[in-house]
Design a protein around this nucleic acid. Structure first.
Length: 112
RNA sequence: GGAGUAAGUUGUAUGGUCGCAUGCGAGAGCAUGAGGAAAGUCCGUGCUCCACAGAGCAAGAUGCUGGGUAAUACCCAGUGGGGGUGACCCUAAGGAUAGUGCAACAGAAAUAAACCGCCUUUAAUGGCAAGGGUGGAAAGGUGAGGUAAGAGCUCACCAGCAUUUAGGUGACUAAGUGGCUAUGUAAACCCCAUCUGGAGCAAGACCAAGUAGGAGCUACUAAAGAUAGUUGCUCGCUAUCGCUCCAAAGGUAGGUCGCUUGAGCAUAUUGGCGACAAUGUGCCUAGAUAGAUGACCAUAUAAACAGAACACGGCUUACAGACUUACUCGUUAC
RNA sequence: GCAGGUAUGGCGGAAUUGGCAGACGCGCUAGAUUCAGGUUCUAGUGAAGGUAACUUCAUGCAGGUUCGACUCCUGUUACCUGCA
């Protein structure tokens, strides 16, 4: 995923937390905030509770890959922050993808 | 082939589709892209700032000997002690005769002596310490002589201490001589020898939105004092104390650098028992900053521990499977 | 990335010149009081084995020093805190 599709600044994360709407399901917490740009940006936050560095990296990479494949089906102009929960450690790629689609559907940012 | 000891290597590969980071390129694209422990942060260095780093005290570290190294608590070669039939392994291993403290309970007594006991015809305000029991530890041990009973009182061997000679750079070893001997603990304080200034790449340097203040200069008071900083403390050191001027300066968010050519890697020769050193030749091999290696498919029986964030040298800990070399024991079931 | 701290029964929390581990409180169990419950009072309460007397193991885990370790030293695991 290119750099322009990532959230990179600490202040932008904070803005999503404070001003954005949040949604959640079994596996994720999601914060969404409209940005002033005409493209969508992602942020993934993996806390130390989920495991060691190898485990955290693996989750990040899987979610990044999922977001890349879903990008054409999302509405433009949003900052999206995804926070995986503890039980995502044991999930396969396919299960993760279903869960992410589910939570995006809840938030209403999937194109029809 | 069995049981074992030591050292070492490897630790997914190949192909396809999509995708990420860095460099090069106008672009298409091309090249490169985690580890043996990248980990723990336990030591040691470089590097940066604090006065290119100072004095004393305090505090801390190391602790058999000699060597290696940029340095170390690491490594190599040895010494003493302990374990194993053996290959081999383990070892915080200076000083208890510099001083102080502590040694519960038990026991007559715990760093100094007498409860029971033995002896002198009986007995002790006398002599004795062999035997008993307690304890982690009880006044050198075993045997013989000796005696009223006993005792290093005497002798032999052993242990310990002091000392002499020989060997070794040294730890120490071997032999001799001497007087007969006061437990343990220094991972208790301490003594001795050697070493250590503090903080850390979120170090630090540069650019710089917003906000609103900031800078320069000279000398009055004058080497006194106050405040702040610098190291735990004492010194020492540094900055500030008044006047004038400017619309810029300092600096937060943010950005750029630090950031990878280095005690580097490979290889050959020489010196050294070895750690290692010297010389020659060749090579350039991640550099991110919400942080790059992933997803899916095919083949191979199965594939662990685990992910760089300034760098390097060690140590420690985690680790599936596969393989190599040297050596030891045992001796026969094939 | 760097710096520091904590760990003791079911829970909180004592125990330091190194000398009987589990004080004390909460909780739990049993009994008394009551028609019943609560309150109150009394007793017990780490685990395993044993009829019992009692024995063995227990201070996160693994070693070491010491006659003796919750305490001293080394390694390690988990959790917590601070630093832009």
């Amino acid at each position: 995923m290119e750099k322009k599709h990532r959230i990179r600044k600490s202040t932008e994360f904070k803005r999503a937390y404070v001003k954005g709407k949040n949604y959640w399901n079994r596996n994720f917490t999601l914060y969404i905030k409209k940005n002033d740009l005409n493209y969508t940006r992602f942020g993934i936050v993996v806390t130390k509770k989920l495991g060691k560095a190898v485990v955290r990296n693996k989750i990040k990479r899987k979610i990044r890959e999922i977001n890349r494949s879903l990008l054409p089906f999302l509405k433009e102009g949003y900052d999206i922050v995804l926070i995986p929960k503890k039980n995502t450690v044991d999930l396969s790629y396919e299960e993760l993808k279903k869960s992410v689609e589910h939570i995006y559907n809840l938030a209403g940012i999937l194109k029809r």
